[in-house]
Design a protein around this nucleic acid. Structure first.
Lengths: 233, 233
DNA sequence: TAACTATTAAATATCGATAAATTAAAATAG
DNA sequence: CTATTTTAATTTATCGATATTTAATAGTTA
């Protein structure tokens, strides 16, 4: 089986790069809470490295806006806000629509095949959503990535990935407080087939509008949940 | 007068953050050539700091894709390629069009006023283009930023800025080898008024198409220049 | 008790030193 | 003379130590 989409530490990586992956995961999954201070002593203990690699890793996450820094006051996990969440999801929807529009124009047979393959892998896991939501989200994302790949623009895909990570942070934080009904996120599975139909028919405008709705529905759900800000504590 | 758009080192910043700005400038302007190895001894001498802040700064530019790193082999300036240039410019055109489309929808009176103000500042400098191209580019960019601001999305504007920086690197590298006719870049000044007209008229589609052409013309010019790859040396 | 100051403790940012790895140069063999 | 191995010199990546800054605590005065 292929390696997961998420970067996995390679033995040829240095300490900083290895720690970037773990630290990012810990922030995205909410092990470190939004706004939480990231003390060096704790990070050293957790990742078994010195301050130098840690500061390098944090410097990278700084640009990715997963942490913030204040001079002489160290690093903190980037705080969350309803405002930022809506902005990220809205931007993500536009970027995804852009990818899809370009993909319909440029996509070739290989692209179409990739979509169908990813759709198959995803559907096969359809009834396991509740069993292993992590794995389902992986396949779901692989499906959408297969579509976006068709735009054939590394630069644009890079932007797309960065936004996905930020959004998935909000998604994870929400799931942590609402274990029960992840259904609200995944109720939109039927939309996938509509999307595929539009794509293979070369109907870019329809596909773009479908994906916009598809990506905005989680943020609408999150928006209505009370106390998003309290996730910060 | 307001501070320039480019981040300027603040006394409250740490060494790493100060060095990020200088190092970025040195890469964007081509003081450090594409692909060039960035040896710590040289960087230490140039920026008067130790390796710790340097590695932190480089770690940030790593994510911004202005440098690359190889384990145990240090940092290099991110290499250039015709392919990447075209991809960056194409993506930038799409993102800018996206910003403008949203801005036309959401923009208010203040937004319109900001555009006219920036246009005035830019036009006042119209005949000084050859005298001080740097300053003109600053005003030109301020004009386009004033327009994009209307989208009112920090996330999207962040993406936009990152792409602008990468593109301006190619622009600077090209200018370095072709001091003479920066005219080819700026021949499109007339398009600005057309753009303003479309924006104030609320004609989003026209504005989007105008900006696409506006942003793609430099890349078409660059594409035709012989030996872009040799800029790496 | 509240507000301010002094003192102590904790944490950060940075440097210099060191071990590991890479590159360059010299030496040796075929 | 070319190719391979050995040796030396650079260079990187990381740690531990230190100066400086911030936060916490105790003490003082009104």
């Amino acid at each position: 089986m292929r390696k997961s989409r998420i970067a996995v530490p390679d033995s040829s990586d240095n300490s900083a790069l290895k720690v970037v992956g773990e630290l990012k995961q810990d922030i995205l999954t909410g092990y470190f809470q939004p706004g939480e201070k990231l003390k060096m002593t704790r990070l050293k203990a957790r990742y078994q490295v010195g301050v130098s690699p840690l500061r390098e890793a944090l410097s990278q996450l700084l640009i990715e806006q997963l942490v913030v820094v204040e001079n002489q006051r160290g690093f903190k996990v980037h705080p969350v806000s309803r405002e930022e969440m809506l902005d990220i999801y809205a931007t993500r929807a536009e970027i995804e629509a852009l990818c899809i529009g370009l993909a319909v124009e440029k996509g070739d047979d290989e692209w179409e095949a990739g979509i169908l393959a990813a759709a198959h892998t995803m559907h096969k896991f359809g009834d396991m959503v509740d069993k292993d939501p992590q794995e389902w989200e992986r396949r779901h994302q692989a499906f959408h990535t297969a579509i976006a790949q068709g735009c054939n623009s590394p630069t644009l895909l890079q932007v797309r990935r960065s936004l996905y990570e930020k959004a998935s942070r909000y998604r994870n934080l929400w799931l942590k407080k609402n274990m029960a009904n992840s259904a609200v996120f995944d109720a939109n599975q039927k939309e996938h087939q509509l999307l595929i139909d539009a794509l293979l028919a070369g109907n870019g405008d329809t596909a773009r509008e479908l994906i916009r709705q598809h990506l905005l529905s989680p943020s609408r759900a999150l928006e209505q949940t009370p106390g998003l800000e309290e996730l910060a504590g």
